[in-house]
Amino acid sequence: MPYLVLGLVLFLCVHSVRIVADGWRTQTLARMGELPWKGLYSLVSALGLALIVWGYGLARQQPVVLWVPPVGMRHAASLLTLIAFILLAAAYVPRNALKARLHHPMVLGVKVWALAHLLSNGNLADVLLFGSFLLWAVFDFRAARQRDRAQGTVVAPGTAAGTGTTLLVGAVAWAGFAFWAHALLIGVSPLGR
């Protein structure tokens, strides 16, 4: 479990700089330059992510069960992860109504993804992993919306084509992950197949 915790600290701390020290980030970025900053940011993020994956895999070998979620939570998690995938797609598909309305759909997608996994998993490693991401996403969304208000950020209005594409891309990505990739990458078939 120490590798999981260390990975979470590295990954989430580097992703929290704008939440807790936006001024310091701006000064450091100006001093270092954009490419070195992005390189260091990416390096620490990748190291943190690698430790999370490794640590979570190790923790799953000797699970510490805190509770056993009801079977119905697996179905709720499937629906919530569909929503999370659509929100993730909304971050990248141009001119969709979700991004126009929510401004930061990827962070909301992380919230929904983390909540879904907390509802359907009751091991200590799951609580640490998904609880940490949920907590981070709550604070990150709040900070991002405050920055938007302070800077007067306006997001382009959505179109029917952009919104439809977002829904389609999100649903197809979710189906591919739920029916195939989750079992391949994580070792668990979320739909019980």
Rank of each mutant, 00 (worst) to 15 (best):
L185Y: 08
G170E: 03
P105D: 02
R74N: 13
L80C: 04
F179G: 11
S16Y: 04
R18L: 13
P105V: 01
V110Y: 05
L29D: 04
A90G: 03
Y92P: 09
L10K: 01
L135F: 15
V127A: 10
G187P: 05
Q151Y: 11
G7W: 00
F139G: 09
V71K: 14
L115P: 06
Y3M: 13
I52W: 00
G57T: 13
T166P: 07
A50C: 13
S45E: 07
S189K: 11
K38M: 02
T26S: 13
H103I: 11
D140G: 01
R149N: 03
S120K: 01
V112C: 08
V17H: 02
A100V: 01
L6W: 07
G48N: 03
V20Y: 10
S120W: 05
G72Q: 12
V14P: 06
G23E: 08
L185Q: 02
P105W: 10
A161V: 15
K99S: 00
F11L: 08
A125F: 06
D22G: 15
N121D: 06
L98W: 04
L128S: 04
R18W: 12
G55P: 02
V64I: 15
L167E: 09
P2F: 15
Q146W: 11
H104Y: 07
V9Y: 11
A116Y: 05
L40E: 09
V112Y: 00
A160V: 15
L87T: 00
